[in-house]
Amino acid sequence: MKAIVMNTPGTPDVLTLQDVHDPKITTPTEILVKLKAAGINPIDTKIRQRGTFYPDDMPAILGCDGAGIVEAVGSAVTHFQPGDEVYFCAGGLGKSQTGNYAQFAVVESHLVALKPTSLSFAEAAAAPLVLITAWESLYDRGRLEKGQKVLIHAGTGGVGHVAIQLAKLKGAQVCTTVGNPDKARLARQFGADETINYQQTDFVQGVLNWTQGEGVDLAFDTIGGKTFFDSCNAVKVYGDLVTILQPDPSIGNLKVARDRNLRISLELMLTPGLKGLINAQNHQTSILKECAKLIDNGQLKIHLSQTFPLAEAAAAHQLLEQGSMIGKIALLID
């Protein structure tokens, strides 16, 4: 099969299209998927730059998100059959025989859900990681409840645009940060009640104005760095702050968080896969199933900004690394 292969960490140029052996079903619970599209996420570019989680397994095929058609199933698989259209977040972290920048992938069946019928394969492939990340951050880590006020950073980004919609589905009021008026208009289309252009306004002051000086019940940080520490000032006393980035103690400290008695949560949706936590993986698959229903009911949308053919994975990485991305990018696979 054709696949985008990475032989060493580095610039996007290390991603090359090569012929590799087709993956084979090796356990009774696996399925073989003929991939039609693969999502591209920031974790892909970070792994490409720094190296994989499994450096002894090089070369590697990247890509955690995939969507395609079931080609074959293991002997113990009863809930999928050839011809089913599916989507999933699995592999792509450097482990041998995994990764979705390829024409085929073998995946454990408990990680796979039926694709939302209303989405194209490209849209579906762009969805799993951000759906799970936003869901776990808001609902599981942040314990978001109806009527609460939430700050979501980067509301038109891959995770942010999904998070706005999930927060609104829970009955929350949403404030989000954006970088320009066009993004503000798009964020409101996703459901944001309030937008703050961080280029023109200090977002902390903007949040305090919006909440009459109290702060939000929950802040969701998708940016990291100084933004994480500044967000502590935008959360109400005894509130929640969830981040998907690792806080850097060289940039700030948690004195404000401690003074305000904040509950801080770290979200890494890759943990179940890296640690082999089956129950947690099943929970993530249940999120994909529930989101598929919401998508097909018209209650949740995936904003796919651009697609690239598989052979142009390097160009897709270059675009993502430029920053200020709206929505998601996907690779189309013949």
Rank of each mutant, 00 (worst) to 15 (best):
F220R: 07
A172P: 15
G91W: 05
G68Y: 00
Q212E: 06
F308S: 06
L274I: 05
H283P: 14
A124R: 02
A60C: 14
P249C: 06
M269I: 03
G276A: 04
N180K: 15
L17M: 13
A219N: 09
A126C: 10
Q246G: 15
G91Y: 08
D193R: 08
V242W: 05
D182A: 13
G327T: 07
I244D: 02
F308E: 01
I287K: 12
E108Y: 01
H303S: 06
L169G: 13
S324W: 02
D296N: 10
G276D: 00
I326C: 15
V237R: 15
G213A: 03
I251M: 13
A314P: 12
C232V: 00
L17N: 10
K115L: 07
P42N: 06
L15N: 07
G179H: 08
Y198C: 11
E145C: 13
A154S: 15
D296Y: 03
E136G: 10
G191L: 06
E321C: 08
L218C: 12
V216H: 13
V237D: 10
V77H: 11
F228V: 00
F88Y: 14
V14M: 11
V20T: 05
F88R: 12
T222L: 15
N209I: 00
A257D: 01
H161A: 08
M269N: 07
K236M: 05
V70Y: 02
T271N: 14
P23Q: 01
T176H: 11
K146C: 15
W210Y: 10
K24I: 01
A38F: 07
G206H: 03
L320A: 09
K293S: 13
K24W: 01
R258H: 10
Q284A: 14
A292N: 01
L332H: 14
S137K: 08
S305H: 03
C64M: 14
L208A: 03
I4Q: 04
P247K: 04
A72P: 09
V150D: 09
P23W: 00
A292K: 01
E321N: 10
S75D: 10
T27S: 14
D140Y: 03
V112S: 15
P9M: 02
S324M: 06
A60F: 05
C89T: 00
G215Y: 00
A314E: 02
G323Y: 03
L218M: 10
I69N: 14
S75V: 05
K95P: 15
P28A: 02
T98W: 13
H317F: 07
A127Y: 02
E290I: 02
K255M: 05
L218F: 06
D65H: 12
L274V: 06
L129W: 05
I244H: 03
F53N: 12
A172V: 11
T45L: 09
I326H: 14
